[in-house]
Design a protein around this nucleic acid. Structure first.
Length: 423
RNA sequence: GGCAGGUUGCCCGAGCGGCCAAUGGGAACGGACUGUAAAUCCGUCGGUGUAUACCUACGAAGGUUCGAAUCCUUCACCUGCCA
């Protein structure tokens, strides 16, 4: 298998290397043959999110360059919990973890190729830890971890204030053991992960050195944050989920389309497979005419296609164009409008029933969480029926308001659309 | 095991018998300005068609009181110090 010698330069150009062990040695190893590498995903939720996507796509970049992926799902580490600054995690039960492991595995698989000379392999660390005895673990692994060094880690130091259980304190040993096992059994010599994983990554490298005298590498990808340094996904739905059940593809697309100007270039590099020339061209366009938002459009198009497929993306693009196209919705065909609203979110009403007032409709359509919220929104001037501001919360739409005889278009604020289909 | 402190709304954090649906900050939401951007400014931010009202809520369950987030008891969890 021949490898792409420019891989590391490309990763650097994309800003994907926030931290790494000996970069020169890694470069040599990555250019001299197919490197077996691994990246792990702990099942902390039923779905992967934006942060995981960076890792999934990076794995794909490495595979595309000729290297061999081992995608690890943390059936074992997910039972323990990686310590985080904000405090002790709640343990999930085995059934939940197993379910989430399966879901996560299915989300990762489409991104990697499981055929060919550098086919990917899925592994689950539960397989080699479940039967491990405590004595063996403490003797063979624990012996290589000086507690004074473990205490010096940032997370641990932070957590010593608030408290940390032995369970979470031990997490790093499990993840390091993963690396050691994959190194021994599969010749894996590179692990990467988010920069919040840096301590875990280097601990693995060190374990391989101490236990086997082996030499392995680690790369940390940067943590994605907004221009003001805060995390993404602090909005209503929380994280940016990849699972269409947890976040509609339409909402997913809209997220990328609405990304702040200052981050477009960075996100294009990290989350798309567009080449350097294309991205620099988009950045130039964007710098010149930011209001056209060519960068955001390309970003939304590319990422949504990667995650939800080209067909779905085309539907969403058309829906977005229809809804945001302009003021006059009555000019749209009912079919186009219906398709758009079904992407954006809609509810149906029985035409034989009396039409509810606009407050109830806002709640039914999911635009507001309660009637009080709906009234408030109306009084704030933030609710619209067919793109016309609603002044009266008691307003009951009449037959003349039904576009194409069946659709009401509700909007909250500037960009939250929902449809009501009457039939 | 002993002693001390803590557990408040999405998050952080005030409140320490009535004026508390609960100060403040952040997040979020709406408006203005724009480009479905950022920044800024203004407003909102438990529920019920509108009530000096009722319901839900201040870790859980009881109790004291005309009245409790605020006092007492028990329980759970967390933190620190001592053993």
């Amino acid at each position: 298998m021949s490898v792409d010698p420019t891989l590391l330069d490309d990763l650097e150009w994309r800003g994907l290397i926030a931290n790494s062990t000996d970069l020169d040695a890694l470069r040599e190893s990555l250019t001299s043959g197919s490197v077996r590498f691994y990246v792990g995903f702990d099942p902390t939720a039923p779905s992967l999110h934006m942060g995981h996507l960076v890792q999934v796509l990076t794995a794909k970049r490495l595979q595309d360059a000729g290297h061999t992926p081992y995608a690890l799902v943390g059936g074992a580490t997910g039972m323990i919990g990686d310590p985080k600054d904000s405090g002790e995690r709640t343990l999930n039960n085995l059934d939940t973890v197993k379910d989430w492991v399966e879901r996560v595995r299915r989300q990762i698989e489409p991104f990697l190729s499981f055929d060919g000379p550098n086919a990917a392999t899925m592994v689950n660390n539960y397989d080699w830890t479940a039967s491990l005895s405590t004595i063996d673990f403490l003797r063979d692994i624990g012996k290589h971890f000086p507690v004074n060094r473990m205490l010096a880690r940032d997370v641990v130091r932070t957590r010593l204030e608030a408290g940390i259980s032995y369970t979470e304190f031990s997490y790093v040993l499990l993840q390091s053991l993963d690396f050691l096992n994959l190194y021994r059994d599969h010749g894996v010599t590179l692990q990467f992960g988010g920069s919040d994983q840096w301590g875990n990554l280097t601990a693995g490298v060190e374990l391989i050195r101490r236990a086997d005298g082996g030499h392995a590498h680690a790369i940390a990808t940067p943590l994605m944050t907004k221009a003001d340094g805060t995390k993404y996904g602090k909005t209503e739905g929380g994280a940016l989920w990849l699972d269409p059940e947890m976040m509609s593809p339409y909402a997913f697309y809209q997220f990328w389309l609405n990304v702040e100007d200052a981050k477009v270039g960075e996100l294009l590099r990290v989350f798309t497979f567009l080449g350097r020339a294309e991205i620099e061209e988009l950045e130039a366009q964007h710098a010149e005419k930011p209001f056209l938002r060519a960068g955001q459009r390309a970003l939304a198009e590319q990422v949504t296609t990667l995650v939800h497929g080209a067909e779905e993306t085309a539907r969403i693009r058309d829906a977005s164009a229809a809804l945001f196209g302009g003021g006059d919705l009555t000019g749209l065909s009912p079919a186009t409008l219906g398709a758009a609203l079904r992407e954006a979110g809609s509810t149906t009403l029985d035409g034989d029933e009396p039409m509810p007032n606009v407050v109830d409709l806002l709640v039914a359509a999911g635009l507001t969480k309660s009637k009080g919220d709906a009234r408030r929104t109306v009084s704030e001037g933030g609710a619209y029926l067919n793109n016309v501001r609603i002044e009266d919360p008691d307003l009951v739409p009449g037959p003349g308001d039904l576009i194409g005889g069946s659709w009401l278009v509700l909007r909250r604020g500037k960009k939250n659309f929902a449809g009501v289909e009457v039939r």
